[in-house]
């Protein structure tokens, strides 16, 4: 298949699905129909004794060895050609780096901009470089039939074209622990001009604390709007009273600077009641960065 003729990944894969499913359906219906017919026709009520003692037929064996061989070879070839289309990135594709961690996505663009949703221009090929920071994850876009694992210590890639503007599901497909099924986001395909405006818009007013929370994946588990996720929401947590277990005894504390700082630097110290003790540590955060994040969280009323 000439890669230049491929208009999108789904256009390369879907005909292979049609071909294999079609062939399988014919075979299944054929086998079942013949079997059911034999069972009815030669049921003991109609056929009290067998009318054949045939133990085999060389020509039949040859036929039903060769025909499936040809059929599966066709499927193999067609499947391989379609797969090559998934691997050959068209020239001029836009590059984005996807970073996966337990349990959030972050997408970084060549101009340094980063986002927790994958914004792309509609109609333009996008190459996604795949990086994992902790365990295996999977980058899965069902609408584009694209999937590739993110493996720590290895850079994989995938590419796709969103042919029409719209919002498409992006799932983590490789099991990665408690928050695996919550590790979902979307591809937002915008008309190219709108996308450029988004890409070059520097969110001047945006608090640096929010950027940091997004960059380190905090928002995968902690919401900013009060909605329930794997961890407590940040909205209104400052000055609230939380219950946790310390040395086997239930304790209560009011959330202040010290509590928030400790919870970022040493997450296992005081786990809020009702939430799992699963937050990883972030050894590469600087003291200054933690301070900026804490400031931002305190501002969320």
């Amino acid at each position: 298949m000439d890669p230049n003729l491929i208009t999108s990944t789904q256009a390369a894969v879907d005909p292979v699905f049609m071909f294999i499913f079609g062939a399988c359906l014919l075979l299944l219906v054929g086998i079942t129909a013949v079997m059911v017919w034999f069972v009815i026709r030669y049921h003991r009520s109609r056929a009290p004794a067998p009318t054949s003692c045939c133990e085999g037929n060389v020509w039949l064996e040859i036929a039903w060895t060769l025909l499936p061989t040809l059929l599966v070879l066709a499927m193999f070839y067609y499947g391989w050609a379609g797969y090559l289309a998934l691997r050959n990135v068209p020239k001029g594709a836009m590059e984005v780096t996807a970073t996966a961690r337990m349990w959030s996505w972050n997408f970084t663009y060549t101009n340094g901009k980063s986002s927790s949703k994958l914004y792309v221009p509609a109609g333009k090929p996008v190459k996604v470089n795949l990086v994992a920071t902790d365990v295996l994850h999977g980058f899965y876009l069902p609408a584009f039939r694209v999937k590739r694992d993110l493996v720590p210590g290895m850079t994989n890639y995938a590419w796709f074209i969103a042919t029409k503007p719209g919002s498409y599901d992006l799932f983590c497909s490789q099991y990665c622990g408690t928050g695996h099924s919550a590790m979902i986001t979307t591809v937002e395909a915008l008309p190219p001009a709108e996308f450029l405006a988004w890409l070059n818009h520097r969110e001047g007013g945006e608090h640096r604390g929010k950027e940091l929370l997004e960059k380190h994946g905090c928002l995968g588990c902690h919401s900013l709007d009060g909605s329930a996720k794997i961890g407590p929401t940040f909205k209104g947590i400052y000055r609230s009273s939380v219950r946790f277990m310390a040395a086997g005894k239930p304790m209560t504390a009011t959330v202040d600077d010290a509590y928030l700082t400790e919870s970022i630097v040493k997450p296992s110290a005081k786990i809020v009641e009702g939430f799992p003790a699963i937050m990883p540590t972030y050894p590469d955060l600087t003291v200054e960065e933690v301070k900026v994040m804490v400031e931002f969280i305190e501002g969320l009323k």
């Binding site: 390369a12 894969v13 086998i31 499927m75 391989w80 050609a81 039939r145 694209v146 999937k147 099991y175």
Partner: peptide, 23 residues
């Protein structure tokens, strides 16, 4: 077993496996 085997062909073909792998 035929249904299991025939859907295995979808998983054996490289292009189609990618979409349904881990689903």
């Amino acid at each position: 077993f035929s249904i299991g085997g025939l859907t295995g062909l979808i998983l054996g073909a490289a292009a189609t496996d990618i979409h349904v792998h881990d689903t």
